[in-house]
Nucleic acid binder design. Structure first.
Lengths: 209, 209
DNA sequence: CCGGGCATGTGCTCACAATCACAACAGAAA
DNA sequence: TTTCTGTTGTGATTGTGAGCACATGCCCGG
């Protein structure tokens, strides 16, 4: 079934499902129907069944889904049954906040390297104990620490340059917080986290609607 | 033309266009074709023309778009020809980083109020001089300061509660950084900024692909 | 052992968004 | 003025994702 092309939206929803399931596990719920799960996630029940169908059969007809099992299966699909090693590039306010953010650690994402171009910061340690390196050490340090995902948290004008370095390391993917479109080689995965775009969306809807 | 239903993706792209245009203005470029702009944004030229067509005619056939004019028009469409007043709720690492973030200010988004439930923080000032208020002052302070958009930056378990308060203020929209789905009344606009979902997307693609 | 109830899994339909392709048209040059 | 170049604006087409509705099949009670 993995040969079918899977909608990007499906992957995003799977991620949402894990959150709802987490809550159910906390509440000792053992079985859940697509209808109930759908209400928790704010989506259509058929949507959930269809999303899961891309990857196999996980439910029991007439019963529903076993919460823990489903959680395990979705995490496996998403590749969350391992730890991922991240590097932060740009440790300004936002970068520091991300490294310290507890949600990442909880999900198995570990920051194992940090970089910044500011000479004053180089050599210093973050609150987590991570040493800040100069950008030209990126290849060396990342390979040594086994970095798989680079997180760009620098001003927009430097983002492309940083991305180029990360591609050369090579890391396997990039999470970009800079408000700019990054060019990367075919097949290289870049995800953008863009809050100014989200704010602009709000502004538009509050103005027009 | 505003009576047509406009795709959400179109609004998001308009936001992208403004960024590319900003760069062109900086580089003293006065005219741009949909083809060139498309390359800068990584989209299809026809897409740009169609997106703009929802709102009127902005180009000159055989020539292209006048950069400054187009920038002005798009900003007007998005509702960025005014300043927006924001309130931050939850001033942890991330919340502080957001308030201090220069991109917001540059686009006309101003933080005019801050809230946190932590008694130690209440009454203190942020680096920008903003006083941190207790959550039960939310209605009063937000109305006084004319807050239009609430930014939720607290742990997931408190997000819904905070959202309820914000709805009652009332603010007009919510930008939610908490990794959870928020229920809001019909017509009330909530935008989610969700980096763990984005990371999960990366993890999936790096695992499967 | 068998039948009823119920939730999954899935083929089909529909709606919408992205792309294509071309006609309309502005400006420059002869 | 007329022709030619080049780019917009837009009808037509394609592709894709979401929702519906039903057949499938598991569990439980009698």
């Amino acid at each position: 079934m993995k040969f079918l092309k899977i909608p990007a939206a499906t992957i995003t929803r799977l991620s949402l499902y894990t959150r709802a399931l987490e809550g159910l596990i906390r509440d000792q719920v053992t079985v859940v129907s697509s209808k109930t799960l759908a209400e928790l996630c704010g989506v259509n029940p058929a949507q959930i069944r269809k999303d899961l169908a891309y990857f196999g059969q996980f439910g029991v007809r007439g019963v529903g889904y076993y919460v823990k099992e489903l959680m395990f299966d979705i995490k496996k699909i998403l590749g969350l049954n391992k730890e991922w090693s991240l590097a932060i590039v740009g440790v300004g306010n936002l970068g520091c906040a991300l490294v310290a953010h507890e949600n990442f650690a909880k999900q198995g994402y570990r920051f194992v390297a940090a970089f910044d171009a500011d000479p004053i910061k180089i050599g210093r340690k973050l609150v987590t104990g991570l040493v800040i390196h100069a950008p030209d050490k990126m290849g060396e340090v990342c390979r040594e620490k086994g970095v798989e995902i680079g997180v760009i948290c620098a001003p927009a004008q430097f983002a492309q340059d940083i991305a180029n370095r990360l591609v050369e390391v090579p890391v396997r993917g990039i999470l970009n917080f800079a408000p700019t479109q990054i060019q990367a080689p075919e097949g290289f995965k870049v995800e953008n986290v863009d809050f100014s775009v989200k704010l602009d969306n709000l502004a538009y809807h509050l103005t027009a609607g």
